[in-house]
Write a protein that binds this DNA or RNA. Structure first.
Lengths: 198, 198
DNA sequence: GCACAAAAATGAACGCCGTTCAATATTAAA
DNA sequence: TTTAATATTGAACGGCGTTCATTTTTGTGC
């Protein structure tokens, strides 16, 4: 019955990640406290550190889960897309809607910083790759003479442009804008990019 | 001689902002400590709190200075620009070069967050406006039928797209890219946007 | 079932940080 | 020079992430 210990630890791990996810979504990454996470997960403060090296490791686990849910949402959004214009527009709008509905979790993906001198682990960087992949796939058909590296760089530029528009808007910097108008701006930019690649 | 007190306080304020600016540029916003700022400014720890309400207020003052220097750099970059394509390309490249040379200070402009429930003061939000203004001015000539609000929204979208490409690159997310290639991507996007507005 | 060793969970305690404030030092006025 | 007003100081406070001695739970051999 040495199985029991395994499952209990996994259960605690899941409860900690769930608690962290809820707290980030409710209060933002900046307000996240180890004591609140432990309390909501129903464990003592020290329990958190039997599962995770430190708070940063738990945040990476939360971000991992967010990326997985986002990948599912985007994947489902392009099921019915045919051409590159459809694909870019559908991806962009799905990305925007995910950001709006999971605002603080989405922010946490990009505003979390490791301590000075500590790099984000490679396995976690790799989890972001699907964002580029979704764009690179339709894009490569429109850049037949380009190598995979060039396609990836251009895909990243396209992702970053759309991402930037959404990020600046959700940060409430500069003028406010309604969600409808934001969707319009994002769609316009997505179509503009789709029509002018190669 | 009640003047003396004024100038001493202003001097302390300047030294604190200078120290904060240096420390952010050297170690990033995340590593900023009140004790380090006070030490480098040559004052006791408490001195910081006789000038600034709290650390956030000092960071806003540092960001204010960064915005002023950025405004000067961008302003100088478009002196010789003639058409909208020149203007967008020159602005974008100048923005990129500023971000590269003042990396951590530039990041601090966008990654700083006020405490939960506290808004960024209006006077500081207003200081960001020139970024939109630089784009809106040439843009409005190409959108003669649009109202000022529509021009501002489109200018913000254009700024955000360029900003996004630079931000994602400097965060080292996704694939790495050389500065030369990044300049090429930014210039390509700037020209694409300039040629397809209205 | 029971005793007992091994492992895990606990929460008080530690060190660090932003912030405060009683005590000290400086400045301006008399 | 004296004295009141003001400014500067850094020890102390409360809150945080993290650690670790202690307690509790789990697995094993009888």
């Amino acid at each position: 019955m040495t199985q029991r210990r395994q499952t209990k630890k996994e259960d605690l791990r899941n409860r900690l990640i769930a608690a962290g996810t809820e707290l980030i979504q409710e209060q933002g990454l900046k307000g996240l406290r180890a004591r609140d996470i432990a309390e909501r997960a129903g464990s003592a403060l020290g329990g958190l550190y039997t599962v995770f090296e430190d708070l940063d490791a738990l945040i990476l686990a939360v971000n991992s889960g967010t990326l997985k849910r986002m990948e599912a949402a985007l994947s489902s959004a392009i099921q019915s897309s045919t051409g590159i214009e459809d694909a870019f527009a559908d991806l962009s709008i799905a990305y925007l809607r995910f950001a709006l509905s999971d605002r603080n979790l989405w922010f946490a993906l990009f505003e979390h910083r490791m301590p000075e001198g500590v790099a984000v682990p490679d396995w976690h960087l790799a989890e972001h790759a699907f964002l580029i992949g979704f764009i690179a796939t339709p894009l490569s058909r429109h850049m037949p003479d380009a190598g995979p590296q060039d396609v990836a760089i251009r895909a990243r530029t396209i992702f970053a442009a759309i991402h930037g528009v959404i990020a600046i808007s959700l940060e409430n910097r500069f003028i406010g804008i309604t969600p409808e108008r934001l969707e319009q701006e994002v769609r316009t930019l997505a179509l503009l990019l789709a029509r002018n690649v190669t």
